[in-house]
């Protein structure tokens, strides 16, 4: 009877104890385990600086193993945390894209404005310095010249 009573209380413990226990790195692949253990034991600043060393696939494995070791309600809290970081990351990414395009447009605008000013000045100068056609010689009303005077001189003839 006593054994049955003990078993009755022990069964829920078997289920609950793993859930309240700390994250067990044994769940992770052997290659990843030592790095995660080192990360967990490191100082805050050092741990933060090593965040980028984990690949996307490794991060997914770690987070999945961590989630499995927690209750459903705690997993929901992780969702909220993930949603918060996702929104924040999206906002930062959008802001950075905005600044990127603003910078590119500004660079192009400055150079374009300068080029336009140069072009306008060139046109103004071209107009002001355009060669003025020489005034047409006054037409004299005179009698038509004699044909003999207009004849071109032959080669070899000497003018006296």
């Amino acid at each position: 009877m006593l054994k049955k009573i003990l078993l009755y209380f022990a069964m829920p413990l078997v289920v609950v104890l793993p859930l309240v226990a700390e994250f067990d790195t044994d769940e992770l692949p052997a290659t990843l385990r030592p790095r995660v253990e080192k990360f967990l034991e490191a100082e805050t600043a050092e741990a933060r600086s090593t965040l980028a060393q984990f690949s996307d696939a490794e991060l997914e494995k770690i987070s999945q193993a961590f989630k499995k070791s927690h209750s459903t309600s705690e997993q929901r809290l992780f969702w909220l945390s993930e949603e918060f970081y996702r929104r924040n990351a999206e906002r930062v990414a959008q802001e950075r894209i905005y600044y990127l395009y603003a910078a590119v447009l500004a660079a192009v605008a400055v150079l374009l404005i300068f080029a336009i000013f140069t072009y306008r000045r060139a046109r103004q100068l071209a107009k002001s310095t355009a060669p003025v056609p020489p005034p047409a010689p006054p037409q004299e009303i005179s009698q038509p010249a004699k044909k003999s005077q207009q004849k071109p001189q032959r080669r070899g003839t000497k003018r006296r």
């Binding site: 930062v92 802001e95 950075r96 600044y99 603003a102 910078a103 590119v104 500004a106 660079a107 400055v110 150079l111 300068f114």
Partner: peptide, 16 residues
């Protein structure tokens, strides 16, 4: 003109 462009793009990179 090119230096002015650098002065415009720099702060827009620095802000984010």
């Amino acid at each position: 003109a090119f230096t002015s462009t650098v002065l415009v793009t720099g702060p827009l990179w620095a802000r984010p």
